[in-house]
Amino acid sequence: MTAFFIWARRFAAYRSLTELLARSSLARLAIISALPLAWIVLANIAPLVQMFVISFYQSYPLAAGTAPEFTIRHYFAFFERPLYLSAFARSFIFATLVTALTLLVMFPVAYYIAKVAPRIRRVRLLLLVIAPFWISEIIRSFAWMLMLSNRGAVNSFLSSVGYSGPPFELLYNNISLTIGVLYLTSLYMLLPLYSALEKIDDRLLEAAADLGATSFRRFTRIILPLARDGIVTGCTLVFLLVVGLYAMPVLLGGPSNTLFASTIGQIFGRAGDSWPLGSAFSMILIFAALAYVGVFMAVLQKQPGRRS
């Protein structure tokens, strides 16, 4: 490959280009940045801006040659139907509970890998726990369907150990949905927690123990405050993930507990010009979720453990 570039030096244009690049860092920056900047605008910003604008349209797509008429009625529609409001509330309550549950379940796991397990085994243990997360959300939902259905693994295990009543209704309700979503979110909690816990200096804990701090006190005064950033990151990631879930609630949840993301998906699936309505709901979801997470972060920053 080097030979090609040396060959290219015969041409004055190539020589002046490389000299310009060697001399001017601005030229290097320009060459590097053109494509990424275009991508940022076209892929990250423009689609959301367009969605924001469409949410104020009377109808979309526009008929050829007509100017759009603007309205805010789609935002009002959100408050008019209890169906929408209850799905929205259910989404946020469910996401909050699942986030808390994920934190509770994953903290000991992260703590074990980061602090208790022998150092040389850490990477292997981490890999073991990460491996199932390369699998599709749909396959994992399916696996839980096989576990929880009326004639599934759990119920047949129960009957094989002597339980003879009717099978437990475990599938298509909040139980199956919570278990399935926890299966999905645990990694997003584990990794931030692990990297925060791993950084805690063991000598801090030893010193505290030498000075007579009980294990409970060491936990609340040293481990928790130092793990705070990991907790905040993990909870943020998990909350935003759960609020946007579409497939798993459809597969594992019951028909009576629709979440808001499914509502939005259904609106876009409907025939007719429902796109402005769906766009308005999407905007409500984005802003509400980010505001909720923002408040959560602000509250945690103010906790007394922050004082130095």
Partner: peptide, 22 residues
């Protein structure tokens, strides 16, 4: 700005892209 897509609910960003490519 670059990591923003990771924080937008997936349903929303997928639908926004779908309308955008139109």
């Amino acid at each position: 700005i670059i990591v923003m897509p990771a924080f937008i609910p997936i349903v929303v960003s997928a639908i926004a892209l779908r309308m955008f490519i139109g």
